[in-house]
Nucleic acid binder design. Structure first.
Lengths: 233, 233
DNA sequence: CAGAGCCGAAAAGTCAGACTTATATGTCAC
DNA sequence: GTGACATATAAGTCTGACTTTTCGGCTCTG
């Protein structure tokens, strides 16, 4: 999914990023570039590059004569896909999953409403195909196949909305759905009602019925939130 | 608002970032680190740090033997506040402003609904104060004072929602509102209906009426979208 | 002529060391 | 106590040499 080993500084980030987002260094903690470089056994140049990246994510702040101080959580760039991945891999995965699901519940219905007005014929076809794929994999413990089509479905909706901000949430939704399937205790087969709703959304979008697409999608996200309440109270 | 001169690499970014987001280098363009370093009259180390930051924003991709290639727009981290600022400062400001306003229209109503259920007494007080401030500055060409209270109002709503993803959009909303006031041709006095709606939202939140807060906020954002249609068709 | 494999050059990547600059903090005089 | 000043510290910058990857062309072969 991401790019694991893109240079030495990348490997440093793979350890340091998760550590910071996991709260291993409490906000206000001070790190020193030289010490970090020694600890990771890399040159200072490499370490500096890593720090710059963390800084651009607002995870840390580098100040002369002080060092690299960890910022409080509320200042992090929580929409950075990398940060999202790190946090989903860490201890507060459940909390993060809930935040993102609430975000979905706000965005996706609106996106679906817009998609109904703007989706191309090709996108409508893709949507139907995805929905059918979900139906096909909805029974018999075939969660992996179901997941693939589920992700694709929501990606198409977000892309078809014509709004770039919505479209870029495709990756986030993918992470959430994957996380739900793989790590939360999910039912062995997906909720039949949800499957039906997806099919109906595809129909509504094809028919250009924005209000209906929005309402149906709202039901999907409400269901997702409810499921989260039941399985991870 | 941001941190303008945080080192040499920051100053490089201040010119290179806007240039890329403005589409000055079409997707696929190849830059060379050494040339850039020469052009900006900085050392390679500094240039490399700048490139790393751009890379973490998914604006460019650095590959051996190839160079630094500009990524297509659809891959950018468009939620990065820095990227948002750069784009708002550039040529496609109107387009960007519209995207962000649509985003607001999806998020803020839901946030207001949640805020009604979770806002602390202090937050309710702040909200009322902001609304009153808006009323006080709603006449007599006092747009600046109005803007300050408008921004504060929406910040509080987003924060009070209790969702960190919503809360972090405070800066984005601030940019949008500021951009609207300063650069789009805004009416000399704000829409009285909008002012009233803000007061009513504050009341609804204080009363704990989520559905009403959500609906009223929806009206605010619909108004904002409509205003955008009228002023920047 | 096509495909596999080899080779060289180009550009990023890495490192080490010396130097500069800002700045937090302690010290001292008043 | 308060101000100015000195000092130590850690980030910031620059340079030059070296390493590593990999693209693109070349040749060799079938």
């Amino acid at each position: 999914m991401s790019t694991p080993g893109r240079g030495l500084h990348g490997r440093v980030l793979d350890t340091l990023g998760p550590a910071i987002t996991a709260g291993e260094y409490p906000p206000g903690s001070v790190l020193r570039t030289d010490e970090l470089a020694q600890h990771f056994e890399v040159s200072r140049s490499v370490m500096r590059e890593a720090v710059r990246v963390l800084e651009s994510m607002h995870l840390v702040e580098s100040r002369r004569r002080v060092g690299v101080t960890v910022r409080p959580k509320c200042e992090w760039n929580v929409y950075d896909p990398q940060v999202i991945r790190w946090r989903l891999a860490g201890a507060d995965r459940p909390h993060q999953l809930r935040s993102l699901t609430v975000l979905r519940s706000a965005i996706e219905p609106v996106a679906a409403g817009l998609a109904a007005k703007q989706a191309t014929a090709e996108q409508c076809a893709e949507l139907t195909e995805c929905a059918l794929g979900m139906v096909a994999h909805s029974r018999g413990h075939r969660l992996e196949g179901y997941l693939v089509h589920d992700i694709a479905f929501h990606r198409v909706i977000l892309a078809a909305s014509g709004n770039e901000m919505f479209a870029r949430l495709g990756d986030v939704v993918a992470e959430v759905l994957a996380g739900r399937t793989h790590h939360e205790v999910m039912f062995e087969d997906p909720d039949p009602a949800a499957v039906t709703l997806h099919v109906q959304v595809a129909e509504a979008v094809r028919a250009g019925d924005g209000a209906r697409a929005e309402e149906l999608t709202r039901q999907i996200t409400v269901g997702a939130l409810h499921e989260l309440d039941v399985l991870a109270p």
